[in-house]
Design a protein around this nucleic acid. Structure first.
Length: 508
RNA sequence: GCCCCCAUCGUCUAGAGGCCUAGGACACGGGCCUUUCAAGCCCGCGACAGGGGUUCGAAUCCCCUUGGGGGCACCA
């Protein structure tokens, strides 16, 4: 059995401080893919050790985002599991115990440095042009000195006593060995003065206790990996396999994607998962899209299913190069997925968007026969679920409410106002007599009429398009007429004639 | 400033020494189809950052330069 086929335990461990963005979602996705590919477990762990930055809303947003993409987890804060709790703030006693263990073994020590003291130290380093960082000033306190400070009631943190010499090597599955001088590891804080662990300590303890086999996380963690290694070594634990995913770049290509919207050349780019949901992206498309950034399913095949991705995903094939998301490809892909949807399915997905945009009842739209007929007409014309409304809004407006604020758009190229009125009048007759009232019959009849009038079909059809939809661009004309039915179609054409007549001043 | 990571079309990628006159996709340009708009189909544009090695042979291996990115908190 190859390595990636051995069941694994991986985790997505976000900090609930803000809304989930695409970078985080991609990290979760790759973890999930690796778990599903190997038949392993995908664990959700909440890293909320910074109480100042905790934001309960973000927890909700996070889970919603993961579920939206279909990244269900096997163990997590909401469902528990064999190695819980899965929320770090509930594991404080565990960290304290392990920290004590480290102190007892000489791998960690209490540091009584105050915030003011640290500031002064950094200020001095800056002034002298020295490298900035903790200078280990409390590392070698005598027993008496330590007791005195403790008696004084001075708060302390627990720091790692990093080796002063030598190098530490960590191995990354896709990047190879990463080597750093131990002297550059400046005794990082393990436990804060409020008793909470720092990320660096909690992540090591939890990954070990939760039996995590592969740590798949963002590239921004590479530089802290060596200090994690030191902790694993101090405890005598086996370090999980490390995989540092390339960061996702800002659409401009410079800098890590942030949670703020970025604007490039006047165009606004989304970053947060909930924004993509609201913009009408399909989770299937997002899944497909994200999977192919930093990894590649098949160089000759862009579109693939979730199952195919799970089947073929190979963590060793991850590309280490940072990438900017190709947003235009996402849009294209979303359009592809929309086109492949069963119309009834698309109707259901469109309903909530249309309800909001057109001020209609969502439940009614789900059942609406009219919408069911319109869906195939817009299906190949939209890339986002939010784009349907202004292509079909006319079908939900009563005929007598269709206004033509600018009647000149009724007049098609090559015709004048009077000729256009004449065409529309002929149309009224056709609409009255056509049988059955179907797109096929209508088109045949109107084509014949256009030919008889010696007018190009494009010019002949155009006024009807505007009469019916109020727009010069619309779904196919005769299908639209069929959706409306004879009476409504006639009413609209007659309204248009009146509007145009009053515009050109012709007597009725 | 110090440490670390990375380097193929505008963007996402294929490429693990000869299959590469570097393949695919999006975007872009042109054409076909066509009742508008789309969709679809066809064609085109377009890259191995630079310099040294290694080798019979390098996009692929090594080194340097350059460029980009990440990290240097009692945030994660």
């Amino acid at each position: 059995m190859s390595e990636t086929q051995t069941p694994v335990r991986v985790r997505f461990a976000p900090s609930p401080t803000g809304y989930l963005h695409l970078g985080g979602l991609r990290t979760a996705l790759f973890n999930w893919l690796h778990a599903r590919h190997t038949g392993g477990k995908f664990i959700l762990r909440i890293e909320d050790t910074d109480q100042k930055r905790f934001n309960p809303e973000s927890l909700e947003d996070l889970m919603t985002g993961l579920r939206w993409l279909g990244l269900e987890w096997d163990e997590g804060p909401d469902m528990g599991g064999p190695y819980g709790p899965y929320t770090q703030s509930e594991r404080q006693a565990i960290y304290t115990e392990y920290a004590e263990q480290l102190i007892a073994a000489g791998y960690a020590y209490h540091c009584y440095c105050t915030a003011a003291e640290l500031d002064a130290m950094r200020e001095e380093q800056r002034a002298k042009g020295l490298a900035q960082g903790y200078d280990r000033r409390y590392r070698n306190l005598s027993v008496d000195e330590q007791a005195a400070l403790q008696a004084e009631g001075r708060p302390s943190v627990i720091r790692l006593a990093a080796p002063l010499e030598g190098t530490t090597v960590v191995h990354d599955l896709i990047r190879g060995d990463i080597e750093v001088e131990n002297s550059s590891i400046l005794d990082p804080v393990l436990v804060k003065s409020d008793g909470m662990p720092t990320y660096h300590f909690a992540v090591v303890v939890d990954d070990h206790l939760m039996k995590i086999t592969h740590v798949i996380r963002g590239e921004e963690w590479i530089s802290s990996a060596p200090q994690h290694k030191l902790l694993y070594d101090a405890f005598g634990w086996q370090m999980p396999v490390l995989v540092h995913l390339p960061v996702i770049l800002d659409p401009s290509g410079k800098g890590k994607m942030s949670k703020r919207k970025t604007v490039v050349a006047g165009k606004e780019y989304l970053a947060l998962v909930h924004e993509f949901i609201e913009a009408g992206y399909l989770p299937e498309a997002m899944f497909n899209f994200l999977t192919n950034v930093g990894w590649n399913y098949d160089p000759e095949q862009e579109i693939f299913t979730r199952e195919q991705a799970v089947e073929r995903f190979d963590i060793r094939g991850i590309n280490p190069t940072a990438a900017a998301l190709p947003y235009s490809k996402l849009e294209w892909m979303n359009g592809m997925y929309i086109r492949e949807l069963a119309p009834a399915d698309l109707q259901q997905r469109l309903a909530p968007f249309l309800a909001k945009q057109l001020g209609l009842d969502e439940a009614e739209l789900r059942q609406s026969e009219r919408l069911a007929k319109l869906v195939p007409l817009v299906q190949e014309r939209i890339k986002l679920l939010t784009e349907a409304w202004d292509k079909i809004d006319w079908a939900f407006i009563p005929a007598n409410e269709i206004a033509y604020p600018d009647p000149t758009i009724l007049i098609s190229k090559g015709l004048d106002g009077t000729q256009t009125v004449a065409v529309l009048r002929t149309g009224v007759e056709l609409l009255e007599e056509v049988e059955p009232f179907t797109a096929v019959a209508l088109e045949a009849l109107f084509r014949t009429a256009a030919e008889a009038a010696g007018i190009k079909v494009g010019s002949y059809f155009a006024p009807f398009r505007v009469a019916i939809t109020g727009r010069t661009v619309s779904p196919p004309l005769f299908e639209s007429m069929e959706v409306l039915g004879r009476d409504e179609t006639l009413a609209r054409v007659e309204n248009a004639i009146l509007a145009l007549q009053s515009h050109i001043g012709e007597k009725v």
